[in-house]
Amino acid sequence: MEKTLSAIAQNLDLMLGGLGVTLVLSVLIIFFGTIIGFLGGMGLTSGPRWLKALLRVYVDIVRGTPLLVLMFLLFYLMPEFGVDITGFQTVVVALSLFAGAHISEIVRGALTGIPKGQADAAKALGLTYWPMMREIMIPQAMPAVVPPWTNTAIEMVKGTSLAFLLSVSDLLFETQNVVERTGIALPFYFTAALIYLAVNLLLSRFGHWLEQRNRYAA
């Protein structure tokens, strides 16, 4: 027991370093995924036909393929196009595309749920597309977007663990290293589990806060 505790104490900073990488990955992925998702969702609802078709193909292919396949596809394929891509970059790009596809569907669904008269009223006041989106449509879509967005964000934090398979030194990679070096398994694994749990529970709280903030009188 004492041996285990001191082993954890000695290796905790390694794991926390891994946590740092996991957090940076998560923030980048959620950020890019959200941008892709909002633009994609708007394109799917109000884009020209060719854009809708293109986005539909993107969303359906990415959502029908395992994240891991998407990741390896990018990792092995980019060099063939003469693009050097690191494991870290691969994870960011692959998971952002993945999150972007899911959030596109979420945003599309939320925008479709807004009564058609809202766009009529906004146009009748003389609003052009982007102000109408920013001031009228997106604010009304938010209550429907935030809960599934939060779920997607949590899936992405968990998804960053796949970086392990590209030897990116994230939390899971460092944990596995420590396990193999010390021969102590469960305490380290459960420490890692608790860290993931804590990060995601914080993210849930953030989601609830966003929900509250985006509520208007009903």
Partner: peptide, 24 residues
């Protein structure tokens, strides 16, 4: 162009059957 359409629409106002007030 969209901008010119918007400018024209701003000169006319419309009241709808379903009110279409902005709920937020």
């Amino acid at each position: 162009k969209e901008k010119d359409v918007a400018k024209l629409r701003a000169e006319t106002a419309m009241v709808f059957q379903q009110f279409n007030l902005f709920p937020h």
